[in-house]
Amino acid sequence: MTPTATKTPPITYARRGRLIGCRGWCNPQDKKRHKSLKMPRRSVMSGMGVAGTAAPLVDEPESKLFSSLVRQWKDETLTLSSIEEIALHPAYQRIIGMGPAVVPWILRELEAEPDQWFWALRALTGEDPVDPGARGRIAEMSRSWLSWARHRGIRW
C-alpha cells in the first residue's frame, strides 16, 4: 500500500491539540493557527522509570529525555536480533509512552540511521505504510515511513 492509499484522515492528532508545535507535526492548514503555541515541558513521574537505568526520571525536557532513551535503547539492544526484545526494551517502551509527539523525532532518527523504529511508529500512529513484500528490508521500510510522513505533512 502506498502512503497516499491510506484512508485514515491526515493527522487527526493535531486537531485534538496533542501534537501542536512539535516540529511541524500538524496539518498544514493548522500551521498558522498553532504557530504561536509551544511544546510544553512535561514532567515524567518519578517511579515510572526502570531500575538501574541511566535515563533521567523527572522534569526533563522532552527532547533531552528522548535522546537519552534512544542512546540507552541503542546501546542495550546492540547485540539483539529478536524484534520483540528490541521493541519491549524499557527505554523503547518509555519512548512509546511519550506519545505521538515524539513521532517527528523518531523519523529524524530513522532518517539518520535506519533502525527498528517500526514497532513504535505503528503503535504511535496506528498505521503501517510498509508493503508486506518489504518485510525485513530496513532501509526500504524506513523510506516507506519517511514517505508516509511527508505525505502527511509531518516535518522533522
Binding site: S81, A87, P114, Q116, F118, R122, G136, R137, I138
Partner: peptide, 27 residues
C-alpha cells in the same frame, strides 16, 4: 542495522530475519 544473525546465517545481508508477531521482520 540492516540485517541480523539469522539473515547472516542464511546468507542474506539485505534483510532482518525474525518471526515477530507484528510482521516487521522477514520470515
Amino acid at each position: 542495522t540492516l540485517y541480523n544473525c539469522v539473515a547472516w546465517a542464511a546468507g542474506d545481508s539485505d534483510r532482518f530475519w525474525w518471526p515477530d508477531s507484528q510482521g516487521i521482520g522477514y520470515w
